[in-house]
Every structure is written in C-alpha cells, then in structure tokens.
Simulated scan of single mutants.
Amino acid sequence: MNQSQQLHMTVYASLFAALTAAGAYLAIPMGPVPIVLQNLFVLLTGLLLGSRWGLASIGIYLLAGAIGLPVFAGGTGGIARIFGPTGGYLLSYLPAVYILGIIAEKGQKTGKPFVFDLIAMICACLIVYGIGVPWLKLMTGMDWAKAFSAGMLPFLPGDGLKIAAAVPIVKTLRPVISGKFLPADTADEYY
C-alpha cells in the first residue's frame, strides 16, 4: 500500500470513527441498553474498511470515548462507561469489526461479496450479543432470562433493518472506497 492509499484509508478510518460517534447520539433509551444507530456504522466500517482499518477505526472511537469525549450513547464518555452495564457491547465492537472485515475480505476474493457480507454482518451481531449480554448480566446482577430480554431481544428487529440498510450502502460505497469505480452496467453484477 503506497502513501497515498494509506492516507486515504486513514481518512476513511477517522471518518467512520466519527460516524460511529454520530450514530451513538441517535439513542432511544430502553432500560440499561439504548437503541442506537452506531451498530450500523460498525457494520459499515468492517465491510468497507476491512479487518485492519476497521479495527483501527473502532479503536479510535473507543479511545475517544474512554478519554472522556462524548461519543457514547446519549452523548456520554469516560472510562466508567466502558466498565458499566453497556461496556461489553462497546468492547465487543473490536472483535466484531475485525471478524466482519475478515469475512468481507474473503467475499471480495471469492467474487461473492453479497453472501459473505450477509454472513459477516450476522456474525458481527452474534459477537456483539455474545459479549454484551453476559457483560450486562455480570454488571447488573440480572438473571440470564432478564439479560437476554433487556440486552438482546428488543434489538433483533432493528439489527435486521440495519443489515438491510447496509447492503445498498455497501454496494454504492465499496467501489468508491476501494478505488475501483465500476461501470454503471456492471454495478448490479457486483452484488
């Protein structure tokens, strides 16, 4: 990767960190875990930037929040949020975006990005819940049924919508970010 490409990817990583922060401001309080749009930007980060740059972007986002910038849900920040009831969800973004990026990269190499992207987004959601729900249970003392009903079940329909929204966004932006502009007549073949 030459210096120009590296600069472009650094800008994209910063942009997606900022978009993830902006998505956290769109929060609907629902008990201990709010509904947020930041998950959509985490999905887009992994799909569009890949594993390494996606990890860097989400790392920047979490670091900004940990040092106190108001980038977490509801315009909050600070290390206490990472160790609070929703901290597992925040920390889960790192492995989720990395695995998401790996699967998406594999899809690009096989020529079947749509199928791999769907699998990647489902895996990312499972990672977020797989870390977030037990963390929520541990930090709040809830039983498992309550943790699942408060930390996962109400969010599944929204995650389905976010995955559906990510598909056309990725179809449009991936050729731009990767630097491969597809002719209009082959754009549909891309997905």
Score class of each variant (00 low, 15 high):
residue 4 S to W: 08
residue 5 Q to K: 14
residue 5 Q to V: 04
residue 5 Q to W: 02
residue 6 Q to D: 10
residue 9 M to S: 12
residue 12 Y to N: 08
residue 13 A to M: 10
residue 14 S to C: 15
residue 15 L to Y: 02
residue 20 T to F: 13
residue 20 T to I: 05
residue 22 A to G: 12
residue 22 A to T: 11
residue 23 G to A: 09
residue 25 Y to K: 14
residue 26 L to W: 05
residue 29 P to E: 00
residue 30 M to P: 01
residue 31 G to K: 02
residue 32 P to H: 10
residue 34 P to D: 01
residue 34 P to W: 00
residue 36 V to Q: 14
residue 39 N to F: 00
residue 40 L to V: 00
residue 43 L to G: 10
residue 43 L to C: 12
residue 43 L to Q: 04
residue 44 L to H: 08
residue 44 L to N: 11
residue 47 L to T: 06
residue 48 L to E: 00
residue 48 L to W: 00
residue 48 L to I: 00
residue 50 G to R: 05
residue 52 R to H: 11
residue 52 R to L: 06
residue 53 W to S: 12
residue 53 W to Q: 12
residue 55 L to W: 12
residue 59 G to K: 09
residue 59 G to W: 08
residue 60 I to K: 08
residue 62 L to D: 04
residue 65 G to F: 09
residue 65 G to H: 11
residue 66 A to E: 04
residue 67 I to P: 00
residue 68 G to N: 12
residue 68 G to F: 06
residue 69 L to D: 03
residue 70 P to Q: 05
residue 72 F to I: 11
residue 74 G to L: 08
residue 75 G to L: 05
residue 76 T to Y: 03
residue 76 T to S: 12
residue 76 T to W: 04
residue 77 G to M: 04
residue 78 G to E: 10
residue 79 I to L: 15
residue 80 A to Y: 04
residue 80 A to H: 14
residue 80 A to E: 14
residue 81 R to I: 06
residue 81 R to F: 05
residue 83 F to L: 14
residue 86 T to A: 08
residue 87 G to V: 08
residue 90 L to F: 04
residue 91 L to N: 10
residue 91 L to R: 09
residue 92 S to I: 01
residue 97 V to H: 05
residue 99 I to M: 15
residue 99 I to S: 09
residue 99 I to W: 08
residue 102 I to F: 04
residue 103 I to K: 11
residue 105 E to T: 15
residue 106 K to G: 01
residue 107 G to V: 14
residue 108 Q to L: 15
residue 108 Q to F: 11
residue 109 K to V: 11
residue 110 T to N: 11
residue 110 T to L: 10
residue 111 G to F: 03
residue 111 G to R: 03
residue 111 G to D: 01
residue 116 F to D: 11
residue 117 D to C: 09
residue 118 L to W: 07
residue 119 I to A: 15
residue 119 I to D: 04
residue 120 A to Y: 03
residue 120 A to I: 11
residue 120 A to T: 06
residue 126 L to T: 02
residue 126 L to G: 02
residue 127 I to E: 07
residue 130 G to I: 07
residue 130 G to H: 06
residue 131 I to P: 14
residue 131 I to S: 14
residue 132 G to T: 04
residue 133 V to Y: 08
residue 134 P to V: 07
residue 134 P to M: 04
residue 135 W to V: 05
residue 138 L to I: 05
residue 142 M to T: 00
residue 142 M to C: 00
residue 143 D to E: 02
residue 148 F to Y: 10
residue 149 S to F: 10
residue 150 A to K: 09
residue 150 A to P: 02
residue 150 A to N: 06
residue 150 A to W: 07
residue 151 G to H: 13
residue 152 M to D: 04
residue 155 F to H: 02
residue 156 L to R: 13
residue 159 D to H: 05
residue 160 G to W: 12
residue 161 L to K: 09
residue 166 A to R: 10
residue 168 P to W: 10
residue 170 V to G: 00
residue 173 L to S: 03
residue 173 L to N: 06
residue 173 L to Q: 05
residue 175 P to D: 11
residue 176 V to S: 03
residue 177 I to R: 06
residue 177 I to L: 11
residue 177 I to D: 03
residue 179 G to W: 06
residue 179 G to F: 13
residue 181 F to K: 15
residue 181 F to Y: 09
residue 185 D to I: 12
residue 186 T to R: 01
residue 187 A to K: 14
residue 188 D to S: 14
residue 189 E to V: 13
residue 189 E to T: 14
residue 190 Y to E: 12
residue 190 Y to V: 09
residue 191 Y to A: 15
